[in-house]
């Protein structure tokens, strides 16, 4: 838990309450504490109230956006009073510099573009070849779902989810995430083949094949991703959405 200090950083419009730069209040545990003679605008408070409890939490999750948000604007469009929420160490009372918050660096992941995909299944073949030395895409961890009538070719790839459903669904903790690449790793010793992970995957990207207990989950080839290299039309790429958009 953190305590908070919420300050008016600046007033860009006209606030007739008035709230002025430097006005503040504190949140300590479950209490809101105002300085002597101080007050807080009701509308501004109600708009940021839910967020105060969020900012009190200690979060260590790269994909969570809340640590990187610390400013709120009063909902009165004329006022444009900007509040800054500052996290304070409950024990020492030290202010945590907001800039110290980890910058969001979304992890690179596989991103498939079905508009570009030609449905050739070269990705499946190379995936299966890389992992099993077999050309049959049956054993691939990437699958292209096709609909000839509509001309749809949809590559189903592992999204390397931050908060991965497959990990949470596994009853024996056989799945973990590679700290560096974000790939889901399967501990085949632990896996009991219950298929809960496949059921949980919202992207239909986990499959099981005959004669193999453990699931087929993309491991990002433990290095250069082969399907990305093999795709003739760059329909599968590895990177962040922002990077790929910029290309």
């Amino acid at each position: 838990m953190y305590d908070l200090r919420v300050e008016v950083e600046k007033v860009e419009g006209f606030c007739d309450l008035p709230m002025s730069p430097g006005d503040y209040f504190e949140v300590k545990g479950g209490k809101i504490i105002l300085p002597d003679d101080g007050y807080i605008c009701l509308w501004a408070l109600q708009s940021m109230l839910p967020f105060l409890t969020v900012k009190q939490r200690k979060i260590d999750e790269t994909n969570d956006w809340t640590p990187h948000t610390s400013r709120f604007t009063c909902p009165d469009p004329n006022g444009r009073v900007i509040f800054k929420i500052i996290q304070v160490d409950t024990v020492t009372g030290d202010i945590l510099a907001q800039d110290q918050a980890k910058k969001i660096k979304p992890p690179a992941r596989l991103i498939a573009n079905e508009e570009k995909c030609t449905g050739c299944r070269a990705c499946e073949t190379i995936c299966s070849f890389t992992h099993f030395e077999s050309f049959n895409g049956e054993k691939a961890r990437i699958k292209v779902i096709k609909n000839e009538a509509e001309g749809l070719d949809i590559p189903h790839v592992c999204h390397q989810c931050g908060d991965a459903s497959c990990l949470k669904a596994c009853p024996v903790n056989a799945l973990s995430k590679d700290k560096e690449t974000g790939a889901v790793l399967v501990n085949e010793e632990k896996c009991i083949g219950c298929m809960k992970c496949a059921e949980a995957c919202p992207f239909d990207s986990i499959s099981f094949i005959a004669d193999r207990e453990a699931p087929l989950i993309c491991d990002l080839c433990k290095g250069e991703v082969e399907c990305v290299k093999r795709c003739p039309v760059e329909a599968i790429q590895f990177g962040t959405a922002a990077e790929l958009k910029a290309l």
């Binding site: 508009e115 570009k116 995909c117 030609t118 449905g119 050739c120 299944r121 070269a122 073949t125 000839e148 009538a149 509509e150 001309g151 070719d153 003739p232 039309v233």
Partner: peptide, 29 residues
């Protein structure tokens, strides 16, 4: 969009659609 046969590096086929006129809705590879 482009369409390809199995594992092709040079997918030369195309999916097309006619969006209006008397053959409106005709779409195929």
């Amino acid at each position: 969009k482009g369409k390809g046969c199995f594992a092709c590096t040079i997918p030369c086929s195309r999916f097309f659609e006619i969006e209006q006129g008397k053959h409106q809705g005709l779409k195929s590879e």
